[in-house]
Design a binder for these strands. Sequence first.
DNA 1: CTGTTAGCGCCTTCAT
DNA 2: ATGAAGGCGCTAACAG
Lengths: 327, 327
Amino acid sequence: MTGLSLATISKYYNGRNVLSSNREVIESAAAELNYRPNAFASSLRRGVTRTVGVLLPSFQVPFHLEIVIGIEKYLRSQGIGVLLTSNEQDGTPSSVNAVELLLSRRVDGIIGVPALADSSALETAVSIGIPVVTVDWCPSGLDADSVTLDNVQAGKVATQHLIDHGHRTLGALVGEEGMWSLQGRLDGFLAAARAAGITIAEDHIQRAPLNVDSGYAAMMRLLAADTRPTAVFAGNYDLTVGAVAALNDSGLRLGRDVSLVGFDSVELAQVTRPKLTVYVQPVEQIATEAARIMNARLDNPEGPRSRVVLELPGHLQIGASVRRLSD
Amino acid sequence: MTGLSLATISKYYNGRNVLSSNREVIESAAAELNYRPNAFASSLRRGVTRTVGVLLPSFQVPFHLEIVIGIEKYLRSQGIGVLLTSNEQDGTPSSVNAVELLLSRRVDGIIGVPALADSSALETAVSIGIPVVTVDWCPSGLDADSVTLDNVQAGKVATQHLIDHGHRTLGALVGEEGMWSLQGRLDGFLAAARAAGITIAEDHIQRAPLNVDSGYAAMMRLLAADTRPTAVFAGNYDLTVGAVAALNDSGLRLGRDVSLVGFDSVELAQVTRPKLTVYVQPVEQIATEAARIMNARLDNPEGPRSRVVLELPGHLQIGASVRRLSD
DNA sequence: CTGTTAGCGCCTTCAT
DNA sequence: ATGAAGGCGCTAACAG
């Protein structure tokens, strides 16, 4: 229709030089035909898809979803698409494995939020040779970059805040054995306590699956301990929700009878009474950094094979749920 | 390596009959070569990508993210990938338009959560001829299926709950003019009031942008009205958060001085004191239905061109934030 | 049940 | 600055 060769038109769409008269011919023809370059055919030819896969764990975590948004935003600005998958099983045995789906669609890289079991799936991706970046979890055995919160630091800061307010009988709500991020936060909690010369009773550390009900039950156990902690650190969003609910239901007053530092629950923090003090992850920054690292790997596939391990600091958002304990 | 022709191998991967001896040869060769069919090449040939685009509005709404998860879960079980995009602008002028990105990647269909401005973008998709399903918003001018909450019904149920508890001075927090879903909820609110013979004062309906701060300010205005409403309906998640915070800050007691029915904030509802009564959308169901409709359109492209407009009911989750008003 | 062939839409040499 | 030709990996149609 333009009378031009395909090659010229290809060049036009790839930003190479074309006579401005031809440019106009192409543009008007494209508009009339509703033409749009086919990214698939281009991928086939170039061997590159400009698409990265994002892998989410099976359970829903608001935090992860915010991360996905951040990743998408950054990558789209680079013209890179985001293929989203989760490892959620729907029971159907025919259900396609998430990583397999990404791989067969030839994503250029994968950003994964691995759950306990998923890192083996990511292993496949690594062995194929595409870049893998993990977020929120730094699997030890995996040759992948990672971007996470500085969990130990987070645990320390939150706990130090309690100690600074005079608390010495401290409790913690954390995840079950093997949850990498929660383990870090617990380590920070313990380190801060140790540094202050505080001993933590064994039943003042409650481990629970990361959901509201378990958090509720764990907090109840904490409140029923031989000596009740005067201050509690809840290590994640769900545990925080459960802890506040448990506190309310036991008739104890948040911030008066028991002080509490929660995690990640910015909106929650505003509706409790008094407002909750929470440790907040830098979600957007985590997402952007993960996307940036991925983009850099894609731009320079032969780049340094050394792992990038980024641990970012969050911050404490002060409410009124931590009471100063007069001695 | 197998000695077989490409055609046979292709058939194997497409589930057609192959001699079992050949099957084994293929499988072992594939394992050794780490072979995996290239979905792109297949798409190019077949003219179909088995990928649908999901378009999110620019602002973050937890509700939308849950929907995406639900959609992905359903579609993956059908072997369909989800390409996620948002209309978030990052300032970069080179930033690729979301719908353009989806279209150039030849998605088979688009599921969109349109914001006010986005429906023109979806128009392009419709004119291309690919199926479009909108969620949470039913644009009048667009030839697309839609799945939404039954917003009018939701407003009615929430309001009726207040009326049933003896309240007759009612207030509402809703979105600004033109927000389709919030308008429906307001209509339901007004209908329920009218049916009960209740007149709503003009300053008892506060419109605000859908974010926490605006909700806070709007609730403050409501509380400062000439005659303060004894009960308030908050029409969305952010407005609910803002409303509770405003109530707390004014020293009024939730459920004692002012009754409140919130929206969508299941977790929030558990941490307020007393627990919040909220109207809850059937998120998972909305997501699944949208995905199901899309899948049906893809399976049968020549299907009926009549629009499917699905309005699903939610339910009221009872807390203790609505007080019975003795006459 | 298996093989042959052509072509999906694009990009990249290489020539002009 | 433009054109001609080959091939990316796969599948549909047909023949055997």
